[in-house]
Design a protein around this nucleic acid. Structure first.
Lengths: 220, 220
DNA sequence: GTTATCTGTTTTGTATACACTAGCCCTGAA
DNA sequence: TTCAGGGCTAGTGTATACAAAACAGATAAC
């Protein structure tokens, strides 16, 4: 693995999991020492992350981790909604039915996973990731897939902020199941509509969580 | 201006305008000599262009300019359609009416521009760019705008392949005018639908042009 | 004749040294 | 006390040297 890829992955993880909080200033030498590589690969990684929108140039010099405000969540969903709808639509038209049939079966079991503590939740998140990858494989269009991938980076950040509310997770699993079943039935219209529903509910949950979290932090 | 930005801009232009044809291999030293900067900024530019999807790593070593096949055009529109629809929708909801009223007036004059030879056509393209920027300003959502910008890079490449058929350009201008008028009227549903129509027609034209172009080249 | 391996060459990947610029502190004067 | 000016410093931007990896060609073995 190249040092620049390693630096990118490491920084990406640190930003997504919150080790590098929004607003954190990223000096090249500092990061190169921390990651054990020279400045060159760090620079490359930073410029990639800037393209991803995870870091930004602030006040002339100095790169900082971008903020994730309530507005950002709304704005992110303004991109997410059309992208995921299109993805679901195309997956319904072209997807390998067998794969999605299998995923549907697993999602029918999601409630048990969600109730299974941390390991279960982890398995559930893993299942969601496999679904995302299946959809990406199904649509095959590299432009759309690339846009989805960048989107999912930002979503991962937000998800970290969301509380793992089992009730919401179960509801989400059911919404997702509707989408998958539509894909299996090659019903692209339904897949798109079900995705719209899922997006709407996800956004509402994300906002509620973020709001209460903001209040909690102000109190604490 | 930084040397790396200069290198990025120069390479971008060369790729979009066809100076660097699809399949062209880009060696770092060669490009750094051509552009008069050292390898470092060239590398940075190349890695940005790779993120944009304009160049790709082929068989282990060697970056090459990505191809634009008929399939690519279809796939690009699978991203373009939802993005532009969303953009039009949001612009209708939030846009500054005055700006779009002005643009509508200019588009009503587009036919005369298109008939005005090369300078007129250029002015027409310029008008379209101003519309794009107005829409981007109106939606304000950085995630969507960023996705649109990357998309437009690829569209610029395709446009170069399309024949400048005045009949198609006039039809496109009328389709665009419908979108703008919907934005002025704050009719987001109509804006989305009109965009869907425009996308469909644009795609059809792009495919037809590309097909005949391919045949011509095979003959020549 | 075909395939595999070795070696030379070319090109990329990484480290580092140097150049330059923006921000900051300190000094001095109003 | 406050503001302007001038270095000083920290950190970025660029060039280049060095290391490593990948390809090509040739030679040898089967």
């Amino acid at each position: 693995m190249r040092a620049s890829d390693k630096a990118y992955q490491a920084l990406l993880e640190d930003i997504v999991d919150g080790t590098l909080q929004p607003g954190t200033s990223l000096a090249e030498v500092e990061q190169s020492e921390r990651l054990g590589v020279s400045r060159t690969p760090v620079r490359e990684a930073l410029s990639q992350l800037r393209k991803d929108g995870l870091i930004e140039q602030t006040r002339g010099r100095g790169l900082t981790v971008t903020d994730v405000s309530l507005d950002d969540i709304v704005e992110l969903y303004e991109l997410r909604q059309p992208l995921e709808q299109q993805a679901a639509k195309l997956a319904a038209q072209r997807g390998n039915t067998q794969i999605f049939t299998q995923l549907a079966a697993e999602f029918r079991n999601a409630e048990r996973l969600i109730e299974g503590g941390d390991t279960g939740i982890k398995a559930y998140y893993n299942l969601n990731e496999r679904l995302d990858r299946a959809i990406e494989d199904a649509i095959a269009s590299p432009y759309l897939v690339s846009a989805l991938k960048t989107l999912h980076l930002h979503l991962a950040r937000i998800r970290r902020l969301s509380r793992r509310d089992p009730i919401r997770l179960k509801a989400a699993a059911i919404e997702t199941l509707v989408i998958i079943e539509a894909i299996v039935d090659r019903n692209s219209e339904l897949a798109a509509s079900a995705t719209a529903v899922h997006m709407q509910q996800s956004l509402r949950n994300a906002l509620e969580t973020a709001r209460s979290r903001a209040v909690t932090e102000r109190v604490a």
